Computed example of a mutant assay.
Amino acid sequence: MKLFQHDHFPHVTGNRVSLRQILDTDLDDLMEISFYDAVQAQTVQQAAEMQAKINQDYLDGNSIHWGIVDHSTNTIVGTCGYYRGLDRGEGELGCVLLSKYYGQGYMTEGMSLAIEFGLNHMGLKRIWAATSQQNGPAIKLLERLNFVKIADTAEDEIEYELRPVINQYHSMK
């Protein structure tokens, strides 16, 4: 099942941030948060190889990975996207923020844009997220975005699911 158009990568614009495709020219700035399959890139070359895999995952309809861009500086401050479950009409939402932007509200707006896009443009029926039990900031972010805890996993993670406050995102159209 393909849930979005592949002829152009979706650009999503909000008040303070936008979500856009990550470009090769962004990779130097994203080394701190360049991951694929939980492995961090150690070089720009590795980051480019990982980004190529991420781009192919998008073309295959398996994920969508955005850079979160601050409008005032045109700088990528983090990334977010849907990484699993799209073949079932659902999506695992994940995010990473560059450390110098912690606590400034970027991720709340970026994730809100991703949620709205997932519900209203991709037609997702379920959105969930997982984080480490020790990741207090991620837990607070998910709760602020109306996710509720649904499970503790054996891998020391907590799973969250977006619950019926979904109507707030449908009204963002």
Rank of each mutant, 00 (worst) to 15 (best):
E109W: 11
H121V: 00
S112H: 04
M111R: 05
L98D: 09
G110R: 11
L93P: 06
G94H: 02
Y106G: 10
N120E: 01
G94N: 02
Y106A: 05
Y106S: 04
R88N: 08
Q104N: 10
K100R: 14
R126A: 01
G89A: 11
R126V: 00
M107F: 01
K100I: 10
G123I: 09
Y101F: 15
H121K: 12
M111A: 02
L93M: 09
G105R: 08
L113M: 04
L113Y: 00
E116Q: 09
K100S: 15
V96E: 15
Y106T: 01
G118H: 01
G118R: 06
G123T: 14
G110W: 04
S112T: 10
R126D: 00
T108G: 10
H121L: 04
T108Q: 15
K125W: 14
D87F: 02
S112Y: 01
F117Q: 00
S99A: 15
R126L: 03
K125T: 13
L119A: 05
E109T: 07
G94S: 07
I115F: 03
K100G: 07
A114D: 07
M107R: 05
N120H: 00
L113N: 01
E90C: 13
I115H: 03
L124I: 12
I127Q: 05
L113I: 02
G89F: 09
L98K: 15
G118P: 14
L97P: 01
T108N: 13
C95A: 07
I127W: 00
Q104C: 12
G89Y: 09
G118T: 13
S112I: 04
L124P: 03
F117I: 01
E109H: 08
F117E: 00
V96P: 05
R88G: 01
G110K: 11
L124N: 06
G110C: 12
E109F: 04
A114Y: 06
